[in-house]
Design a protein around this nucleic acid. Structure first.
Lengths: 168, 168
DNA sequence: ACTTGTGCCTATGAATTTCATAGCAACATG
DNA sequence: CATGTTGCTATGAAATTCATAGGCACAAGT
C-alpha cells in the first residue's frame, strides 16, 4: 500500500495540502464521521460507510499512523479492538461540522428533514448549522452540543446495518 | 469518466456523505483552495496543485457540473476561459477554513511560519485560526477578512509557478 | 510567410488503486 | 463439535491515475 502522499514533497507550507494528505479521501472522511457518531467497531463502520473491508482496514491503518485514531482492545480472548479518536482526531470535528453545514444547505436530499440536529447544552436551544449557536450566538464545540438523529435518518442507518448483516 | 458516486445510492440523508460525492477528493479540494486564493486560469491552477492536466480538467468539469464553479470567457479570439466560484462554491469557504485551522495546528510543517494570516476587517486585528475572530470574537466570513501570505509561502508558490513554466 | 510562443487542454499506455467476491483464524455458544 | 461472530486478508478483474507526448487555435515577432 503505497497510497499516501506523505513524502517530502508534501512538506509544503500550505496547511490545506498537508491536511489533505491525511484526510483527502471519501472513505477516510466517512470513517471519521462514524467515529464522531459514536461507532467504534470495525463492522459497524464498514456497514455504515458501505466500504469493502480492505478500504476500511487501509484507511483505519492510515488514520492510526497519522495519529487521528487509536486502537484499543475491548476484549482479549477473543482479542478484539475498537477504534477511538485521539485528541488530534477530535480536533477534526470543526471540519466535519462545516462539511455538514455545506451539505445540508447546498446539496439537498430528496426528502426534506435534516439528518441530525444539535442542541446547544449551554443555552439549551437548537444550535443550527453555523460555527456559532444560532440561538445564543456563542461558539459551538463538540463538548457543548448534543446530537439527535432524525427518525428518517435513524431508519436509514438501521436499514444499512440490517442489510449488512443479511449478506455476510 | 465514471468517477462520480452521484447515483441513487447517494440519496442518503447524511449531508457529509452527499458533500463528499462532490468534494471528497484531494485534487478537488486543492482546486477550490486555488480558486479561493484568487487563481482563475487553468494553468495557474495546474501549476499550484501540481496535478496533471487531466486531473485538473476532470475535476473542474465535475465542479462545474455540481454548480460550485462557473466558466467565463475572458477572451474570445483566442477563446479562453477562466474559472470562478459560484455562490455554492463560495459557500464552501468555511470548510476550507476549518481544514486550514486543523492543518496548521495538527500537521506541522518543518519550517515554522503560518502560510497565510488573516486580518479581520471589522476590528482590524488578526483573525486567528478559529471560526470567530480571535481578537474581537465576532464570527468570520470570507467577506470580512483579508489574507496575507507569509514571505516563505509566497516564495514557495513562485517557485512552483517557475518550475511549471520551465518544463513545458 | 514562417517560426516560435502561449493557453488549454486531449491521447496513450503503463502503473496503481479499487471493487466484488471469497475465505480464514480465533474464539464463543449451543 | 457444528454453527455463528468479529475482524480482517487474498485474489483477480475493472477502473483510475500518472507520466509523457502532442494537438489546436491563435498571437507576435522577424
Amino acid at each position: 500500500m503505497k497510497m499516501m502522499k506523505d513524502n517530502l514533497s508534501d512538506q509544503t507550507l500550505c496547511p490545506i495540502a498537508r491536511a489533505e494528505t491525511v484526510v483527502g479521501d471519501r472513505w477516510t472522511v466517512l470513517i471519521l464521521r462514524e467515529l464522531f457518531m459514536g461507532m467504534h467497531r470495525f463492522e459497524e463502520i464498514q456497514a455504515q460507510t458501505e466500504g469493502t473491508p480492505q478500504m476500511i482496514a487501509a484507511r483505519l491503518k492510515n488514520l492510526e499512523a497519522a495519529g487521528l485514531v487509536k486502537r484499543r482492545a475491548y476484549s482479549k480472548r477473543p482479542l478484539r479492538y475498537q477504534y477511538l479518536l485521539t485528541e488530534k482526531g477530535e480536533a477534526f470535528h470543526p471540519v466535519i461540522l462545516a462539511l455538514r453545514a455545506w451539505g445540508e444547505t447546498w446539496i439537498k436530499s430528496p426528502r426534506e428533514a435534516r439528518a441530525v440536529n444539535y442542541t446547544h447544552l449551554i443555552c439549551g436551544k437548537p444550535a443550527g448549522l453555523g460555527p456559532t449557536c444560532e440561538s445564543c450566538g456563542r461558539p459551538l464545540s463538540r463538548t457543548n452540543m448534543v446530537a439527535e438523529q432524525s427518525p428518517k435518518y435513524r431508519r436509514e442507518r438501521e436499514a444499512r446495518a440490517e442489510a449488512f448483516k443479511a449478506n455476510r
